[in-house]
Design a protein around this nucleic acid. Structure first.
Lengths: 199, 199
DNA sequence: TGAATTATTGCAGAGCGTGCAGAGTTGTCC
DNA sequence: GGACAACTCTGCACGCTCTGCAATAATTCA
């Protein structure tokens, strides 16, 4: 099972075709004017097929199916690493995730540009990342054992989403140059300044 | 214009009737089985009227139209108060907001119970609170003047939502006793512990 | 009471999303 | 290569959410 079969290759190609067609049409006429029917006409498949690939129209903008954490990075986090300081270790998690977008950096960035102006899409992204948060919840429980009650887990998860979102915003206001995750440290610094202004 | 006219009273009563009918039906048969048509049959009005009151079905669960901050509290925040410590002053803002739910405490709590199990509803709540975040953005700019760049504003807003959400979760895991905002301090304490474990 | 304002309603229709069943592809095993 | 299983695509019918429009009914105010 080293090489992808024809089936898997076709599936991936079609997925990307859907996402790219959606982005192209949205750039031309604005996302609100893009219908699923139009996307399918562009790709050359039936509407029914679209919904075999995505649960909703917004998912075609995001193109993210399951954005998994790197298991090695997750294990290190669960074991209390890499540094032992929770906030720092959360950064490692986010950086790792932003480093491996399922469909490539360009599509992720285009998706964010669209999500910026379309709350439904941004919220849909939150839903997807919520899955990642659940995965994170497991890691937090492994890391803290019985010391972790549910609301701690929830807080860490929400905080992680907030950091990721703020990082995107900062990357965007900085002109969209370089990698998104490069802006994470300054966001964390700012958070620290807000929470504990004088250490 | 001291006393509400018949018109305003009827409107409010109908709004509450919609919300209560939605909650009742959701309790009976599960939210996913509740259609707008059923809600309207329960209330005794046409479906079209429903959409004169709410933009979406989920809004009838939440029953929040515009959840405004108390202007006096907002002004004090913008002026750098009440304590001068940003995180503490954010708490004052959240407490004030949670203290004055537009349709009463009971409905807010029932709405949260439903939102807990229904991501779309929770996300819809985020959308509404986003408006509050925009209002907060204005306050943050007034508070910091030119020192506040856009990503700072975004981070504070997102952090505020995260705190409010985590507070609800904690209130819920604590059994739903007392006021929601009573659990905010412990959430903030936990956040502080995460960000700056040893001061 | 009469005129202006505002709310309610039905209707027609666009768009999203799902279940189903038949037809077409791909993978596997001999 | 052939046969069978597994998966994918497609059209169709349908339910549901939500909007625009224009007619009707109810409140307000003078």
């Amino acid at each position: 099972m080293e090489v992808e079969g024809l089936r898997a290759r076709k599936k991936r190609a079609r997925l990307e075709a859907f996402v790219d067609a959606t982005h192209r049409l949205a750039a031309e006429q604005g996302l609100e004017r893009v219908t699923v029917e139009a996307i399918c006409a562009e790709v050359g498949v039936s509407v029914r097929t679209f919904f075999n690939y995505f649960e909703s129209k917004d998912d075609a903008v995001l193109g993210m199916e399951h954005w998994r954490l790197d298991p090695a990075v997750g294990d290190r986090f669960a074991a209390g690493g890499p540094t032992g300081h929770l906030l720092t270790d959360m950064q490692a998690l986010i950086t790792s995730a932003l480093d491996h977008p399922p469909l490539g950096k360009e599509r992720m960035e285009r998706a964010f540009e669209l999500a910026k102006d379309h709350p439904e899409v941004m919220l849909r992204a939150y839903t997807h990342l919520q899955g990642l948060t659940d995965e994170l919840g497991g890691l937090v429980r492994r890391r803290f054992g019985d010391a972790a009650d549910e609301s701690t887990v929830a807080l860490v998860g929400t905080l992680l989403l907030a950091l990721a979102h703020a990082t995107f915003v900062r990357w965007d206001t900085a002109g969209g140059d370089g990698d998104v995750q490069d802006h994470l440290p300054s966001v964390v610094a700012e958070l620290t300044a807000i929470v504990a202004p004088r250490a």
